[in-house]
Amino acid sequence: MEQAEAKTLEVIRQDAFDPAKFLEELDAFPGVDKIKNCMQCGVCTASCPLSHEMKETPRKIIEMIRAGMRDEVLASDTMWYCASCYACTVRCPQGISMAEVMYALRTIALRTARNLSAAFYKTFSDTVRRYGRMHESDLMIRFALRTNPLSLLKMGPLGLRMLAKGKMSLSVPTPIRGAKEIGKLYEKVAELEGGA
């Protein structure tokens, strides 16, 4: 194990941050609201099946957002651990949808993030764009090619068993009839988001 660095108390000059701007950016996502009403009770952290793996707990992320610490929030690993189980969301005493906050943070981070999770979500989106539906084999192969082609070998045994059980198919997927519509949908979304 590496020697842990001596921990020093970080000093934050408040004028280095613009909380209102970050809050506004998040506010643009539907379902993301009432962040300012968070009372920091920590029920989200305590309800999360994976918060123990995170460097910053969900509660802390909210407080960082309110302090305007945009770069620090986007660099955290918190949102990549969210499995969208909504346990936090149903228990939040202020009705904050933490799951939606995590979607929003991932979406913002994805614009620049270069990690495994980012690659997965992008590959998923590409597959749907191509066929209109998701195809596990296609998704997994493309994901592996994008990240670590060697991992295909590791996935081999499970993949083979999936094939044997008829849970996966190696035939080239057929796009849905409305594949053109899906393409147009992607274009329109890009146009609206770019123009916004």
Partner: peptide
């Protein structure tokens, strides 16, 4: 996956 990648989509 899409909720995490592109909100409008």
């Amino acid at each position: 996956a899409l909720s995490s990648a592109d909100s409008l989509l």
